[in-house]
């Protein structure tokens, strides 16, 4: 296949606040602002960021569950944003979604078999035996016993429900699965089970994932590339190993430093970043991170930094660390964390 599986170009979503019939200008929530990326077949692209950064809106835009204000979503070169209802229906076979909450995303009145075969029945009629065989096969794929086909969601644990959600997404043999915080509601021991399952499925079936998460530990495990979002924009997009080895954008750096580390001998010297994310209704001028940024200079307050390609294949939007004119960045400031070797 030529070209990427999924290509997103300048995707933008503004939600108007109120109807504004009598008002001259309507305030808008700038949920997603000029986001571009691509995903190759069989690759996992992670999108990380904190609540309100627009990562879930991106997921919805990819599935066309909401209409973009501007920009294009291309699958194998076809812009799905322009498709009519019938044509879109066919494209939906190619991409499926797994949701965060395994409790509210499954119909409580349907059995496991009905839940996971429902997407297929949208496209073709299945006989009773066919459906049972398909359900048993899907359950086996996600590591559940085929005897579970008659269970209701209420009879299953959180981890089992999330496996059902994944089985449902697999039922149409999609090339792309969009997982929106798919393991966030699960306990860590179960989370590890589900992450391993996703890795196995990717290896066996060559599925590409857009994996949306706020948890950097999870992202580091599952991702090939990572996009960090802040207030609707991508601020850094890098290969996973490069990003975690050396974050370049000050926000990425703060995010990495803020994650609690399960090591009591490590002592946090200071809070990595002060303040909170500003409102997307009235974002700051210039770089959205400048009010919280320890490196901010005058230019950051005026001009939105463009995404600049760096030597190691990443792109970064920062006037200080990735100035548009050069390819090299100044050295990273002292880390907020220090390792104290009091106990060996």
């Amino acid at each position: 296949m030529n070209g990427p599986l999924l290509k997103v170009e300048n995707l933008t979503k503004h939600y108007p606040l109120g109807s504004g019939i009598f008002k001259k200008s309507i305030p808008v929530i700038r949920a997603v602002e000029d986001v571009s990326f691509s995903v190759e077949a069989g690759e996992t692209l992670c999108i990380v960021g904190e609540s309100g950064c627009g990562k879930s809106t991106v997921a919805r835009l990819l599935m066309r569950l909401v209409e973009p204000t501007a920009g294009r979503v291309l699958i194998d070169g076809t812009d799905i944003a322009g498709l009519k209802k019938d044509a879109l229906h066919a494209w939906r076979r190619r991409m499926q979604m797994v949701f965060q909450d395994p409790y509210s995303s499954l119909n409580p009145r349907l059995t496991a078999a009905q839940i996971i075969t429902e997407p297929v029945e949208n496209f073709e009629r299945l006989g009773r035996n066919q459906r049972q065989a398909l359900a048993a096969d899907l359950l086996r794929k996600v590591g559940m016993s085929p005897e579970m086909t008659h269970r209701l969601p209420s009879e299953l644990s959180g981890g089992q429900r999330q496996r059902l959600g994944i089985a449902r997404a697999l039922s149409l043999n999609p090339s792309l699965i969009i997982a929106d915080e798919a393991v966030s509601a699960l306990d860590v021991s179960v989370q590890a089970q589900i992450l391993n399952l996703l890795l196995d499925l990717q290896q066996q079936m060559g599925i590409a994932f857009v994996f949306i998460s706020h948890d950097l530990g999870v992202v580091e495990h599952i991702g090939h590339r990572v996009a960090v979002m802040y207030l609707g924009r991508i601020v850094e997009l890098a290969p996973c190993e490069a990003l975690f080895a050396k974050p370049v954008h000050p926000y990425t750096e703060a995010l990495l430093a803020a994650a609690p580390v399960p090591d009591p001998t490590r002592i946090r010297l200071q809070v990595p970043v002060d303040g909170e994310m500003p409102s997307p209704i009235n974002p700051p001028n210039g770089c959205a991170f400048h009010p919280r940024c320890p490196l901010a200079v005058e230019r950051c307050r005026i001009e939105v930094p463009p995404l600049v390609p760096m030597a190691d294949g990443r792109i970064v939007a920062c006037h200080v660390r990735a100035p548009a004119t050069e390819l090299s960045a100044p050295p990273i400031a002292n880390r907020a964390l220090a390792q104290i070797d009091s106990i060996s």
Binding site: S189, V190, Q191, A192, N196, L199, G217, E220, H221, P262
Partner: peptide
């Protein structure tokens, strides 16, 4: 088991996390 199933950056990047089987 709990400690091993938490993704931990200091152990280096593993592709598979040790899991606790069962429920």
């Amino acid at each position: 088991g709990l400690m091993r199933s938490v993704p931990d950056r200091r152990r280096g990047r593993q592709r598979r996390l040790p899991e606790i089987p069962g429920i």
